[in-house]
Design a protein around this nucleic acid. Structure first.
Lengths: 250, 250
DNA sequence: GTCTGATTGAATCGACTGTTTGACATTGCG
DNA sequence: CGCAATGTCAAACAGTCGATTCAATCAGAC
C-alpha cells in the first residue's frame, strides 16, 4: 500500500509549502525554481535532489491536495447513489459530491482558503499538455463516474446536450475557485463575510437549475436569434473603433 | 478619429497573424518572440521595431478582436434595452448580447473559429496583472453595463446574489470558449457537427435558468448539506491514498 | 574514534529569454 | 539623380531558466 509521503518537516516539506503558495499566487509557469528555493531558504539543488525536477515538484504539489479531493468525491458519490435506492440520485447531491470535497479538504490543511482554491483552479485551467499525467489520470475517472451519475439523474437529456451542460457547470466551478477573490473584495464589504458555505449553496442552486432546464421545446428565443444572425444586422455595423493602442501598453 | 490600424500586408501583419495563432495554441506566456518571428518568417528585431516590445504585440493581438467585440456588445445591449420600452429587457436577450458578438466577429475575420475562441478564452483567463491595461479598460465598462442590465432584469435578487450568478455565468462562457475542442472531439463524431449556433442556444438556456432560479426560499438541500458538513463525516475518512508520484511525471 | 549513506551548498553548465545595436537594403519624394 | 525615411537583417547584449557537478557537511551505526 503506497502512500503520498508528505514529510512533516525538513527541506522537502518547506519546498512543497513554498512552492504551492507561489504556484497559487503567480501560476505554475510563472514561478522559477529559484523563487521557490529562495522562499524556502534552501538551495536550488534541493529541488532536483528531492523531486527529480521542477516538474516533479509541480506534480507533487498538485497531488498533495487532489488525491484526497478525488477520494472524497468518489466516497460521497457512492454514498449519494447508495442512498437513492433504485431511482436516480438527486441532482443537487451529485453536484455537492463534486464540489464540497474542495471545501472540506482545505479545512484539513493549514493552507489558507484563498491559496488553496487558486491552486486548484490553476490545476484545472492548466493546458492539457501542461498537466502532469498523474493529475490527468486522477481527473479522468472522476469525470466519467460523475457523468454517468448526471446522465441517470437527467435521463430526458440527449448525451450531447448533457455533455455541454456539464461543461458549463465545470466552467462555473473553476471560475468560482480561481477568481473568488474579486468577489470577496466586492461583496465582502457590504453584507458580512460570505462564507464558503453560502457560496457553495449558491453554486449548487445555479448549476442545478441550468442542468435541469428542459431541453425539449424550441424556445422562441432560438428563432429570433437565428434570424438576427442571418440578417447580419450586426455583422457590419458602423463601428468606428476608438482605440489606437500602438505601443502604449501598461 | 483614431483607428486600430491593421495593415493588410507586410511584416507587421504577418507578425500579428503568426502571434495570435501561437498565443491561442500555447498561451500568451508560453510563446517566445523567436517562435513568432520564425513562423512569420521575419527577424526577431521586427517585433520590437513594429510593436515596441513583446507586450506591445500581445496587446495589439488582443485588441484586434476585443475592440469590435466590445463595440458590438454595447450596440446589441442598447438595441435590446431600447426594444424593451419601459420594462426590463428579456434575460435571454441580454445574455445573447454578451456572447453573440464573439461569434459574429469571428466570421468577419479570416481566423478559424477554434483559434479565435481559444484566444479570447485566454484573454479572460489571464491573470489581472498579466493583462495589458488597455484590455482591462475595455472589459470593465462592459461588465458594468451588463451588470446593470442583469440587475434590472432580475430585480428580486440581492446584489450579492446577482454578482455571484454573473460570476458563474462568465465562468461557463470562458470555459465554453477555451475548451470547446474537447467537446467537438467528443460530440462531433456522433450526431453531426454541432454548429456554434447550437452551442450558443444551449449556453443561453443553461445560464438563463441559473440566473433566473429564485433565490428566496431555503431549499431542503441546504439543511442536509450543512448537517453533513458539521458532522464532518467526510472530514477524516479512512482514505488510503493510492498514488506514489515521486518523480514519475509524464 | 571510523566508516557510510543521505543531504546540503556554491559554482557552473548550456540553452533560452526579450531587447538592442549597427550595418545593410529598400522605398518614396523632391 | 540625391537624400532621407523606412524597413530588414545577422549578431550580440545581459539576464534568467532548469539542471548538474563536486566538495563540504551531517546523521547514525558500529
Amino acid at each position: 500500500m503506497r502512500e503520498l509521503k508528505i514529510p512533516e518537516s525538513g527541506a522537502k516539506r518547506k519546498l512543497l509549502d513554498a512552492a504551492e503558495g507561489l504556484f497559487a499566487e503567480k501560476g505554475f509557469e510563472a514561478v522559477s525554481v529559484r523563487d521557490i528555493t529562495q522562499l524556502a531558504k534552501t538551495n536550488v539543488a534541493a529541488v532536483n535532489y528531492h523531486f527529480g525536477s521542477r516538474d516533479g515538484l509541480m506534480a507533487l504539489v498538485m497531488m498533495r491536495y487532489m488525491v484526497p479531493v478525488t477520494e472524497e468525491r468518489l466516497v460521497r458519490l457512492d454514498e449519494v447513489e447508495s442512498r437513492a435506492t433504485g431511482g436516480a440520485a438527486p441532482l443537487e447531491e451529485i453536484i455537492e459530491a463534486l464540489v464540497r470535497p474542495l471545501i472540506s479538504q482545505v479545512r484539513k490543511s493549514e493552507l489558507k482558503e484563498r491559496v488553496f482554491f487558486k491552486l486548484v483552479g490553476r490545476i484545472f485551467t492548466q493546458q492539457g499538455d501542461g498537466l502532469p499525467s498523474v493529475i490527468e489520470d486522477q481527473l479522468r475517472p472522476v469525470m466519467e463516474r460523475f457523468s454517468k451519475a448526471f446522465a441517470k439523474a437527467l435521463p430526458e437529456l440527449t448525451s450531447e446536450e448533457l455533455v455541454w451542460r456539464i461543461h458549463f457547470t465545470v466552467g462555473a466551478m473553476i471560475h468560482m475557485l480561481t477568481h473568488q477573490e474579486l468577489l470577496l473584495r466586492v461583496s465582502g464589504g457590504e453584507s458580512g463575510t460570505p462564507t464558503m458555505e453560502q457560496t457553495l449553496a449558491r453554486f449548487i442552486r445555479y448549476t442545478a437549475a441550468g442542468l435541469r432546464q428542459e431541453a425539449g421545446l424550441a424556445r422562441s428565443l432560438e428563432r429570433d436569434t437565428v434570424e438576427a444572425f442571418e440578417s447580419e444586422v450586426f455583422v457590419e455595423p458602423d463601428l468606428t473603433p476608438e482605440a489606437e493602442v500602438e505601443a502604449e501598453v501598461e
